[in-house]
Design a protein around this nucleic acid. Sequence first.
DNA 1: TAATAAAATTAGTCAAGTCTAATTTATTTC
DNA 2: GAAATAAATTAGACTTGACTAATTTTATTA
Lengths: 249, 249
Amino acid sequence: MHKVYVTMKMRRRQGNPFNFNDYPDTSMDTPLSPNMEDYMENISMLLKEHDVVRVKDIAKKLNIRMPSVTAALQKLKEKGLVDYEKYGHVQLTTKGKEVADSIYEKHSFLTEFFKEILSMNTQEAEEQACKLEHHLSSNASNRMQRFVEFYKQEQLDGQQWINRLDSVLEEKRLSELKEGQKAEIIRILGSGPLKKRLLEMGFRKGEIIHVLKYAPLKDPIEISIKDFLLSIRVEEAHSIIVKPLGSHD
Amino acid sequence: MHKVYVTMKMRRRQGNPFNFNDYPDTSMDTPLSPNMEDYMENISMLLKEHDVVRVKDIAKKLNIRMPSVTAALQKLKEKGLVDYEKYGHVQLTTKGKEVADSIYEKHSFLTEFFKEILSMNTQEAEEQACKLEHHLSSNASNRMQRFVEFYKQEQLDGQQWINRLDSVLEEKRLSELKEGQKAEIIRILGSGPLKKRLLEMGFRKGEIIHVLKYAPLKDPIEISIKDFLLSIRVEEAHSIIVKPLGSHD
DNA sequence: TAATAAAATTAGTCAAGTCTAATTTATTTC
DNA sequence: GAAATAAATTAGACTTGACTAATTTTATTA
Ligand SMILES: [Mn+2]
Ligand SMILES: [Mn+2]
Ligand SMILES: [Mn+2]
Ligand SMILES: [Mn+2]
């Protein structure tokens, strides 16, 4: 929800007014903002790779300029999360490590969620995780983490629903296909005259279609089914659910 | 990740920070911030309840003061999302309705995710949804939504994994129980001497325990198993997974 | 070791989004 | 219809977290 000042003159707001997470223990301190959390997380990552972390490294990792890092480090030092002296190297305090680890834990299971369960590619899974990690309550975190563990166990156990899910996630709307792609028709949404018309045109469950020409925003889409050439409007293509053949991400 | 300015003097940053297609300038305006998205979402909600929405209503709903709302409305008008004249009532434009609906759609399936799948209570599910909704990419959105739909179908089909998941989500660590609660021991984490010791104390899968005394942060926890009274340190209790009996939330 | 280069900091700016206090406009009440 | 009240806006301030430009400190090199 909306940002709230955390200053001398704290405004009254019911509940936990912050967008931010509550951490184990350190409940007395004001919570970190998403940006500050990312500083912590990334400093921790850099420390795992090199035993000396410089302002420049952090700036590069977060794709920001050095003065922004300097300012952030001063704040984090103030909060007792980093050891840092001007012109010196950066280290995490014990408390800082705990914070960083707790963020990274969320990053990890969220990444697994998007990657393993929702079958997203690594990069997008990581990006989503790194955005969401700052907004999960500790209860939601726990449950999410359990769910990911549960999924992995079910996968090991060879449970069939995993395959059913994968199958559903592969489905797209015909209108989402790119030029040249082939796909199998899974089902046709809606009902009434539109559906009837599509069926009459030859769009039936199980048929294989081939997208010949599709310029985004430019109706119509030209496709072939078997040996027939067909034109279909984007809006109509929107209600045809297909499963792309071959190709991965 | 870190904020990027989108102003007259756009900073140079490698890559395209937004998920926009670099098409011939579709005059794609800058994306809304989470806060602005919440304005849109809440204005839309208010419009569903009353046909006139006033600055005061929005301020109340978002728990902020009126001048903040006035400022926001001016920006949203600028972006062509709301119809609004000074001292007048607020309406959404066609474009504004689309934006609001798209946010609300995310809000909805995320709420379902937390509520139905992760078994969280309504309020916390809503809160989490309303935070995360602003940070989901459209791909992640689609997949998430499909997953929720999939889950609901599996539930209708009476698939057993749903029950297994519910069961796992009910589990807690012994250290999370409150005074007076009873629970069944599900399993004991870890291995080696600690686990052995716990087993010897009588902590075995299937046993019912009763928490007699537990002051948070104050070791030890006093519990009973069958007719035995036991004291256990919080750290040890942490590795005992139990399922609370009775009680909800 | 002195000169140069690189890294880091300081100083000052800016936009977003909030706030309070003062003022203006609209609505209700007598 | 004037006075009182409620709603809304304006003006001005503040925090966060970016930025650039200028300066200072540290490291490298000849
Ligand atoms: Mn992050
Ligand atoms: Mn992260
Ligand atoms: Mn929201
Ligand atoms: Mn919402």
